[in-house]
């Protein structure tokens, strides 16, 4: 099969970007989308042209590196998949496919389709952890955790940090990411001690980074390669509200 690609090219964050039309010929429908780009890039390189820069690594949908917006959809067609899990059989011979980077102010373009997602790391650094010194943990079975709780925490923990939620959100909001990461630890007994500060700091860092605001449209959840539920955003809202209330009204009591 053959397809025409309309690819976003941008040399770096400071230069203007534009679309470039490239032809991809003699493709096998069983190729992955990224393998199709490999083929196109090999041809470009053979002509001493710069290949299309795109992020990728594990190519099995777990590392969260790949970040293509294919025909306006972060991670392209298909439910619950990352860009690397999109196969050419999802397209028709002769299709024109638009490929763009994830677009959001806090994700500046590094080159072509590669964006900088350091903002996510900053959010985790602010509070996405349990404070525990190496070697100081009690026996792992000392705290039983109901299976349902552990399973729900795992649902949230499945986040691969790719940023598709931000890319899909009409407002470039990072709330699904922050909700998943804060909820995972806030649900578990291990995370209780820092529950309030965690959500407060993570939300504050998210705001600083310049992400937009959730308008409860749940595009994030639909685009999420791990289909993380928007329910966690509800939980984050709740945790945040109570954390604020507790900070305001219960702080003093604890000092006594």
């Amino acid at each position: 099969m053959n397809v025409t690609l309309k690819v976003w090219r941008q040399k770096n964050a400071n230069e203007e970007g534009h679309f470039e039309t490239l032809e991809a010929r003699n493709l096998n429908p069983n190729m992955s989308f990224l393998e199709m780009l490999d083929v196109v890039n090999n041809e470009l390189e053979a002509e001493s042209k710069m290949p299309v820069a795109f992020d990728h690594d594990c190519r099995e949908g777990i590392c969260g590196t790949c970040s293509l917006t294919i025909n306006g959809q972060p991670h392209g067609p298909g439910e619950g998949v990352a860009s690397c899990q999109v196969y050419m059989r999802s397209f028709k011979d002769g299709d024109t496919i638009t490929i763009e980077p994830f677009r959001a102010k806090p994700f500046p373009v590094i080159r072509d389709l590669v964006v900088d997602r350091t903002a996510f790391d900053k959010i985790i650094q602010a509070g996405g952890f349990v404070t525990v010194r190496t070697g100081s943990a009690p026996d792992a079975n000392a705290i039983p955790i109901p299976k349902e709780t552990a399973d729900l925490a795992m649902d949230a923990a499945a986040c691969i940090g790719c940023g598709a939620c931000v890319a899909a959100c009409k407002n470039a909001s990072a709330m699904l990411f922050v909700a998943a990461k804060s909820s995972q630890l806030n649900m578990l007994p291990q995370g209780q001690a820092e529950k309030d500060t965690r959500v407060l700091k993570m939300v504050a860092t998210m705001d600083e980074a310049g992400f937009g605001n959730c308008t409860n449209q749940y595009e994030c959840s639909a685009a999420c390669p791990k289909l993380i539920s928007e329910d966690f955003i509800g939980k984050m809202n709740r945790d945040y509200l109570f954390a604020n209330l507790r900070q305001k009204f219960l702080r003093r009591k604890k000092k006594i």
């Binding site: 309309k6 679309f19 917006t69 025909n71 306006g72 959809q73 638009t98 763009e100 677009r103 959001a104 102010k105 806090p106 899909a168 959100c169 009409k170 407002n171 470039a172 909001s173 310049g210 992400f211 937009g212 605001n213 308008t215 409860n216 449209q217 749940y218 595009e219 959840s221 639909a222 685009a223």
Partner: peptide, 24 residues
């Protein structure tokens, strides 16, 4: 205003999965 600022550039092939017309 914040939302506009967070997404200064839209997509060429804008696509909607779940967001209802009402919400948009």
């Amino acid at each position: 205003i914040e939302n506009r600022r967070a997404r200064p550039q839209g997509y060429e092939g804008e696509h909607t999965h779940r967001a209802s017309y009402a919400s948009r």
